[in-house]
């Protein structure tokens, strides 16, 4: 239960972090809430841990036209407590408050969670539904990737040697759009067995949906209309087509019919939640 020995570096700048991460056997750490258990269990045994916690530039959040930008070190608790602006009313806040436990949320970061790329993680799924984009810094300079292109597999990302994730851009949720987010856990705070996320705008007739925790990057439906009888209108959630969802899961490699049922049901509940959120939004 003790990590294998490693060296620790705490760079102060992004450039220094990138050059340290060029070394073989180097691993970046943000809040350490995902890497920590893996180190303690000796599942991970890097020679060098590059602690990004000392880089002030990553501990910021700012607004840009059409989106909010979160530095990689913004924590789940920062979002939960409203220390950073949300992309809509109670969108990210709701997701953040359900991640793990408060003691973990106080250190766990949005960037670290995406970098860890656990398919069952909340940010991986919620931010996929919200069309987030990541900004990457590396020896070749900066680049941006859509989250779908960043997440290349379970626990793997498009980050190259010496690259770190520095910021996450999340588009503002349009007025009238509603966000449903449901996850299935047997115990509060554990990694989800199924995640469903729906961003629907019945007035505009659009809906984006995500089925997550399928041991692979989330299954994203940029146009989820086929899952709801072909059109997104008021009351779309009642027209959820579980068979269409199950077929998509089967095509994505989810072979167990019980798991397909669970994922489809969780998505149905997320759609219902998105519908039910309308009065709350209207009242506010």
């Amino acid at each position: 239960m003790k990590p294998a020995p490693f060296r620790l570096e705490r760079p102060r700048t992004i450039a220094d972090a990138c050059s340290l991460l060029m070394q073989d056997g180097a691993k970046a750490m943000a809040g350490g809430q995902s890497l920590g258990p893996m180190l303690n269990l000796r599942l991970a045994a890097p020679d060098l841990v590059v602690d990004l916690g000392g880089i002030a530039e990553l501990r910021r959040a700012w607004s840009e036209p059409g989106c909010e930008v979160y530095g990689a070190l913004v924590t789940h608790a920062d979002v939960e407590d409203g220390r950073v602006p949300d992309v809509g009313e109670n969108i990210l806040r709701r997701v953040a408050g359900g991640i793990a436990y408060r003691a973990v949320r106080n250190r766990g970061t949005m960037g670290g969670s995406l970098f860890h790329a656990d398919p069952a993680a909340d940010w991986v799924n919620a931010l996929s539904a919200l069309s987030a984009e990541v900004e990457i810094a590396g020896p070749e300079g900066r680049r941006r990737l859509a989250l779908a292109d960043f997440l290349t597999g379970a626990l793997s990302t498009a980050l190259g040697c010496g690259e770190i994730l520095v910021a996450i851009r999340v588009p503002h949720v349009q007025a009238g759009a509603r966000f449903g987010y449901v996850k299935h856990c047997r115990k509060v705070g554990e990694f989800a067995h199924a995640v469903g996320a729906v961003l629907a705008d019945p007035a505009a007739g659009t809906c984006r949906a995500v089925m997550g925790a399928i041991d692979a990057p989330p299954l994203v439906f940029a146009d989820a209309a086929p899952l709801f009888g072909g059109a997104i209108t008021e009351g779309f959630a009642a027209r959820f087509d579980a068979a269409a969802a199950a077929a998509a899961l089967a095509a994505a490699g989810v072979e167990d019919p019980v798991r397909r049922h669970m994922h489809a049901e969780v998505l149905r509940r997320a759609a219902l939640q998105a519908s039910a959120l309308l009065p709350e939004k209207a009242a506010a």
Binding site: L8, R12, G53, G54, D78, R83
Partner: peptide
């Protein structure tokens, strides 16, 4: 409280 992980202080070297 400032943004970022509690306990991780910017600008302080490891050792």
């Amino acid at each position: 409280r400032r943004l970022g992980p509690v306990g991780a202080h910017a600008g302080v070297d490891a050792i």
